[in-house]
Design a protein around this nucleic acid. Structure first.
Lengths: 176, 176
DNA sequence: AATTTTATGTCAGCCTTGTTGACATATCTC
DNA sequence: GAGATATGTCAACAAGGCTGACATAAAATT
């Protein structure tokens, strides 16, 4: 992946006080904007999920299953970072209500390969479009390079150990 | 599709495909990156809060009270968008453990003006610095204009009705 | 002065979604 | 065949949301 242009990458090392201030002065603006943005970002889906008797936990599961047909339980647990008991509760409801189906693995028959049903895909898409509308509105108010900057920023907020994994999930397998 | 006002029904036909793609193709990358980034962003404070017997809810309350000494209950409820009962549960604990103190309002004695104690400010600052470290790491991997782009983006993700309010909270009262 | 509205506090109970621990089953691997 | 692995399930608990009802003091209105 393309690194930042070296000339822009570094700070001015001449003044230690600058570095200290950067390290020690809290970035209240970005901390708080992140909170408010996330608060509103998840509120759109919430309203619709309510109509189906689902919550945010159902949304996360449905989203990733819809995006990656054939996802296994273990992979899903790794993405969501919750316990299998927590996952199972919401997954069971999604299966019972016919939004997700669970097929036995072919190569390893212990695994469950999760797939969204047509109904499941519809709901997932509906919710994704809602959030996309909000995103597009925000991007359209910004510069053309904003999207790349925002993606890069969000990616680097993620724990370094996970970054490659997330990149694969989000942008698909590398073509190398 | 139901009737629309004819003149507004469609844009210039030549650009319809562009607009449709923008409106209809989900921005999966930004949706998912936002999820993963938020997941890790809140995980740093979580570890420390645990040592104090606090959770995320306590963090939010302490953060905004520490940032805005003299905040009232009503203002805090408006920021957090939770019920007073939910707020009261965590606020009571923060007051009992001497991280926040509640003073009677001077002009309106029904109000409670919330202030962080020295201990409260210390913890709030510690957590903010932790998150700032993550933010700075992410910004340093990006272009110099990234910070402005990210701020702008996050701000525009917020509900339009709230945007001015949040701007005031985050950037302070305008000098006009 | 009496009434109404507002800001806050509190009790009681419920829901969602996270947790831990223990145990069961089928299947794969060695 | 033995052990490891992927998943399912039961039970209990905790955090942090919610609603509804009711209480109090102080401000605002009439």
């Amino acid at each position: 992946m393309p690194d930042a242009i070296p000339a822009f990458k570094q700070q001015i090392p001449s003044q230690n006080s600058d570095r200290d201030i950067l390290a020690e002065t809290p970035a209240y603006d970005l901390i708080e904007l992140f909170f408010f943005a996330y608060r509103d970002f998840v509120s759109d889906p919430d309203r619709i999920l309510d109509e189906y008797g689902f919550g945010r936990a159902h949304h996360r599961v449905l989203h990733f299953v819809s995006r990656q047909p054939g996802l296994t339980i273990a992979e899903l647990l790794d993405i969501l970072r919750i316990t299998k008991q927590s996952l199972n509760r919401v997954l069971k409801e999604l299966i019972e209500k016919d939004f997700i189906e669970s097929r036995m693995g072919t190569s390893d028959r212990r695994q469950r390969l999760l797939h969204a049903t047509p109904q499941g895909h519809d709901l997932a898409l509906k919710l994704a479009k809602l959030q996309t509308r909000r995103i597009m509105r925000a991007l359209s108010a910004a510069s053309p390079e904003a999207k790349a900057a925002v993606s890069q920023y969000l990616l680097c907020l993620i724990d370094p150990d996970d970054r490659e994994h997330v990149k694969q999930l989000v942008f698909g397998p590398e073509k190398t």
